[in-house]
Simulated scan of single mutants.
Amino acid sequence: MKMLLKALFPLVVICLSLAAAPASAGEARKSIFGKLLDGRVVVAVTLTNLRGVSANVIAYGASLQSLVMPDRKGRKADVALGYDNIGDYLSKPQYFGATVGRFANRLAAGRFSLDGQSFQTPINNGKNALHGGTIGFDKVLWDVVSVKSGPVSLVTLRYVSPNDDQGYPGTMTVNATYSLDERNNLTIDYTATTDHTTIANITNHAYWNLSGEGSSNGAMGLIVTIPANTYLPTDDGAIPYGEARSVAGTPFDFRTPRAVGDRVRDVREKQIGWARGYDHNWVIGRKVTPEQHLMAKVYDPTSGRGFELWSNQPGLQFYSGNFLDGTTSGKAKKVYREGDAIVLEPQIFPDSPNQIGYPNARLEPGQTYHNSITYRLTTLR
């Protein structure tokens, strides 16, 4: 029995001290993060639980501004990149923790068609549209409509995107609910409705460095697992060719745990060269599912911090922080460099409206779009 326990011990994952917690519940606390240039107040809501985790959400971009969690020795660190003032979010936008949409990721040439009618969105990424356009959901002030403390503390934010916003048809009402429970599950639920046929693909763009957002360790040592047999190769503008390609024998194979940095500079792989690292969609499924499924696992050997990422979406965009260029400093007043963080975005596939056989991005009146994302935060002893 003793030998068995010794063999199993390294594999035991604990959800940040899941021992019995005190009877009192977590808290959701409002504060003022800053003001926009026109004087509008940017509200912040901090969600905390009794196990040492806290998430700060700001109304600008419905953004996850920070996530603080303990390491294996109980030392707390903020593991999400971002700024400590609204001025930097306005002057140096980097999608840090932001809600991105109406259409996350890229649309080729910024165009799509619905029922024979063509629509044009702003070109803001080379020849293509990225994350909804020049003024996407990440660059608007959302309304805080609900704040609740308790065993599940939460905040709900809302934005009403008017008809023809960034060229998209229909008035779209979007809700973003962040919740934190006592099992250290941080969940982001996105829902959207429309009064006219449109497209929707909304996700969160958090940058993760599990050693701490100001740590010199960067993110190349993070151990990542992605349960996908295929990924979508792209052209040099990050638009998929169409057909999925097997990950077997390539730097895109994360079916077993691998460090991000092991193959991120593999010059033999043209896809890596074009993107300067990883910036691709892994095919987890082919359609949105009623229930969540595992999208990825991330583990930091240095701190012991990690998470499982679950969602109901079919695709996972994995980005290795390739364009953090050392011109931006964050909350710890440390420069963010290439490879200092990774991004994992559950979503439908890039350019889906223009690709045959890709998941459906169409949203009709009377339907509700839903992307449910959960980070199951863990610490490995």
Rank of each mutant, 00 (worst) to 15 (best):
Met1Glu: 14
Ala7Gln: 13
Leu8Val: 11
Phe9Arg: 12
Val13Glu: 08
Leu18Ala: 13
Gly26His: 00
Gly26Asn: 02
Ser31Pro: 08
Leu36Ile: 12
Leu36Val: 12
Val43Glu: 15
Thr46Ser: 03
Ala55Lys: 06
Asn56Tyr: 00
Ala59Lys: 13
Gly61Asp: 11
Ala62Lys: 08
Ser63Met: 12
Gln65Thr: 10
Leu67Cys: 07
Asp71Pro: 06
Asp71Tyr: 02
Gly74Tyr: 05
Lys76Asp: 12
Ala77Val: 08
Ala80Met: 15
Lys92Leu: 14
Thr99Gly: 01
Arg102Pro: 05
Leu107His: 04
Leu107Pro: 06
Arg111Gln: 10
Ser113Thr: 12
Asp115Thr: 01
Gly126Ala: 04
Asn128Glu: 05
Ala129Arg: 01
Gly133His: 01
Ile135Lys: 12
Ile135Glu: 14
Lys139Cys: 02
Asp143His: 09
Ser149Ala: 03
Ser149Phe: 01
Gly150Glu: 00
Thr156Gly: 04
Arg158Leu: 05
Pro162Ala: 07
Asp165Arg: 01
Gly167Tyr: 00
Gly167Glu: 06
Gly170His: 02
Val174Leu: 00
Val174Thr: 02
Ser179Gln: 13
Asn185Asp: 15
Thr194Val: 07
Asp195Pro: 08
Thr198Ile: 09
Thr198Trp: 06
Thr203Ile: 11
His205Trp: 09
Ala206Gly: 10
Tyr207His: 11
Ser215Trp: 01
Met220Glu: 13
Ile223Met: 14
Val224Gly: 02
Val224Thr: 11
Pro227Gly: 07
Pro227Gln: 13
Ala228Glu: 01
Tyr241Glu: 15
Val247Met: 08
Phe252Cys: 11
Phe254Thr: 07
Arg265Tyr: 09
Arg268Gln: 12
Lys270Tyr: 05
Gly273His: 00
Ala275Gln: 08
Gly277Lys: 07
Asp279Ile: 07
Trp282Ser: 08
Pro290His: 01
Glu291Arg: 13
Leu294Arg: 12
Pro301Val: 03
Glu308Met: 03
Trp310Leu: 11
Ser311Ile: 13
Leu316Cys: 05
Leu316Ser: 05
Phe318Asn: 09
Tyr319Phe: 15
Ser320Gln: 03
Phe323Glu: 13
Leu324His: 03
Leu324Gln: 08
Asp325Met: 05
Thr327Cys: 00
Lys334Asn: 11
Val335Leu: 12
Ile342Asn: 11
Leu344Trp: 08
Glu345Thr: 05
Asn360Arg: 14
Pro365Ala: 02
Gln367Tyr: 02
Asn371Ala: 03
Ser372Asp: 05
Tyr375Ser: 13
Tyr375Asp: 14
Thr378Asn: 10
Arg381Pro: 11
